[in-house]
Nucleic acid binder design. Structure first.
Lengths: 193, 193
DNA sequence: CTAATAACCTAACGTTTGTTTGTCTAAGAT
DNA sequence: ATCTTAGACAAACAAACGTTAGGTTATTAG
């Protein structure tokens, strides 16, 4: 009969993962437009044309990486939320977790903030949908929070995520750890100015 | 004698401003790499080659725009700071002002957050210096603030600026006004979570 | 009026880009 | 042992890119 293997990988020494890793690292640090297919191929140790065996276009490669990125971030976030005893603690754990995820060099998640809207117009809707799913976790966390009436929940979410996502522009290994940075933003939110 | 005019513009109908406006608008919304010289020329109503009468390269055009951007933002910020009665009020005024500046479509300032580091490697140092000058105002404001001992001043600055700069990714005219958004971030900082 | 030149235009240059094409090779199935 | 094909390679393609060169026009100084 035909192949009894319903899964994908049929060959052992495929360099699909190398391509994804290279693309994720380059998209995350340089952005989408500034990263060329030749850059990715070179980083993955292969020829530019070979990338098109795995993906039909640059945009499809981005989409595949983006999906993994959201998936990785989501599972880490779910675990962090579980560890919080109450809504307040859950929110704080989520903040620290998201910060660590965004500053982790070996994680794909930085691609989410490294790609500008409008960079890949034809798949922008899909990327936005993926990202919205992730941010929904924060929506739920904040909804369950007891807050002063003056605080707009939507604004709180956008400000916190914005502040965390911006850390990637100034973060440098060797200084404060991602965890310390995450804890500091929690501290600033808790202390009245 | 030679020209008794020490200033720049010698011809009345130069379209330098149109070039700067077009470049600022496109760099701000699409980013540096995604904006082509042909895009800018088209937006300014002229030919691509004509841009090189005013600027020797794309990077020089960016630098000129960036300088104006920081200048505009700086003067607006100085005025806002002056209007604050005490350190706390000055800081709050600065937050609202910076938010309004970043969301103003007719201002060059959005270029500061629209250009990724590494987009223009040869002038990156100059751009960073310009931007650091602007952020120094916030450094001084926060230094004069009375804060809980647990709050790291550097982190407070980076988080607040990060949150405000991120507003440009989700802001849409028709909803909350830039001023309302700025006031909300002040409110969130003042209310203990 | 004439000469100079500021401010453009037209047309192209060489390079880089995403992508396509055809060929080769080694591994798994029969 | 043979056949098939996953997975790569080398080489090129057309389009788009930043940029350059030379020509044109209209203003202005003398």
């Amino acid at each position: 009969m035909a192949s009894a293997n319903p899964n994908k990988q049929q060959r052992s020494h495929s360099r699909l993962k190398a391509v994804l890793d290279a693309g994720a690292m380059l998209f995350a640090t340089r952005g989408y437009k500034a990263t060329t297919m030749r850059d990715i191929a070179s980083q993955a140790g292969m020829q530019p044309g070979s990338l098109y065996y795995h993906f039909a276009s640059k945009q499809e490669l981005l989409q595949a990486i983006y999906e993994i990125a959201v998936e990785q971030a989501q599972s880490r976030l779910d675990e962090a939320i579980r560890s919080g005893k109450n809504p307040q603690a859950k929110f704080e754990e989520a903040i620290v977790c998201h910060t660590e995820t965004m500053l982790d060099q070996d994680n794909y998640a930085r691609v989410m903030t490294g790609v500008l809207p409008g960079d890949a117009p034809e798949i922008e809707a899909e990327l936005t949908t993926l990202r919205d799913g992730y941010e929904d976790s924060f929506r739920r966390l904040i909804r369950a929070l007891k807050l002063p009436s003056k605080v707009d929940r939507k604004m709180l979410r956008l400000f916190v995520l914005g502040a965390i996502n911006a850390t990637r522009t100034w973060y440098a290994p060797g200084g404060k750890t991602p965890r310390q940075i995450g804890l500091q933003i929690v501290e600033i939110l808790k202390q009245p100015l």
